[in-house]
């Protein structure tokens, strides 16, 4: 057995860990006070407090319409990428042929290739087929980015799942798909849900592809943010960012609580 290192010897480790966490979290929370700033500019710390930037967001058509577009887009991305990503993960996990390894790497490609390169490629294709500024085009492009996240999370869920259970279900009378729905899916639910969350956030946060192919009525909120950052720099951006941050955190916490409930229910 190892002797535990005394607290005095470990304290620097805690300090370091704290600093790293602070560094990771701070930028996220800096924008929140700025959103309630009374200043016309992005000042930190804010000289006074007001809600006018939230008011401006909800009264200016550009802003809230683009937010609606982004939300719709994120939902559509989830709807498309979740079944595709889950099915792909299942195939990769259960398939023994070398093709599946190859397929996995192919599917993960959008994670590795810089978005700017994807954006240029997609832009030229969409110009040809007339999908620039088209909602379907945006959804498909975002789904491409989201699928790798779903594949990765669902794969990790499947790794801790005992595939024998599907064999049992089949021996007890289920068809393959039926066995998946009744036995596998309920048990990898958590991974699929977090894959969905990743897909949602990936789409919501996406800016580079949006800059190239979103336009007109289908302009995403991130594109508007980018534009406003370049042109006017007012704290509306901070207000939007705060809402995005709060939204994402809420979903993440909801998932955490959901996961905990499931665990305790299973043990009880």
């Amino acid at each position: 057995m190892h002797q535990p290192v005394p607290l005095r010897g470990r304290i620097w480790l805690y300090a370091l860990a704290f600093l790293i966490l602070l560094f990771l979290v701070l930028p996220v929370f800096v924008v929140i006070p700025m959103a309630f700033s009374s200043s016309r500019y992005l000042d930190f710390p804010p000289p006074g407090w007001s809600l006018r930037w939230f008011e401006r967001f909800f009264t200016k058509v550009d802003w809230y319409e683009s937010m609606l577009v982004s939300l719709k887009l994120a939902v559509a991305t989830v709807v498309i990428s979740t079944p595709i990503g889950t099915a792909a993960a299942y195939a990769i996990h259960t398939g023994s042929h070398a093709f599946f390894k190859w397929m996995r790497n192919l599917l993960l490609l959008p994670l590795i290739v810089p978005h700017i390169i994807l954006a240029i490629g997609i832009f030229y294709i969409y110009v040809r087929i007339g999908w620039l500024g088209d909602f379907t085009g945006l959804v498909l492009a975002h789904a491409m980015l989201a699928v790798p996240f779903v594949v990765t999370t669902v794969l990790s869920g499947l790794r801790s799942f005992d595939m024998n259970q599907e064999m049992v279900a089949r021996s007890l009378g289920c068809g393959r798909f039926d066995a998946f729905l009744r036995v596998t899916l309920p048990q990898i639910k958590g991974s699929v849900l977090s894959g969905m969350l990743f897909a949602f956030v990936t789409s919501l946060d996406e800016v580079v592809l949006g800059l190239f192919i979103a336009a007109g009525h289908n302009t995403t909120v991130t594109k508007v943010m980018f534009g406003s950052l370049r042109d006017e720099i007012d704290p509306t951006i901070a207000a939007v960012s705060s809402m995005l941050v709060i939204g994402s955190l809420t979903i993440a916490f909801a998932l955490m609580i959901l996961g905990r409930d499931r665990k305790t229910a299973r043990q009880g």
Partner: peptide
């Protein structure tokens, strides 16, 4: 398998 109408017990039980 699912059309063979047989009951099967596995090594690790594989309960759901």
């Amino acid at each position: 398998v699912n059309k063979r109408e047989l009951g099967m017990v596995f090594q690790n039980y594989a309960l759901f």
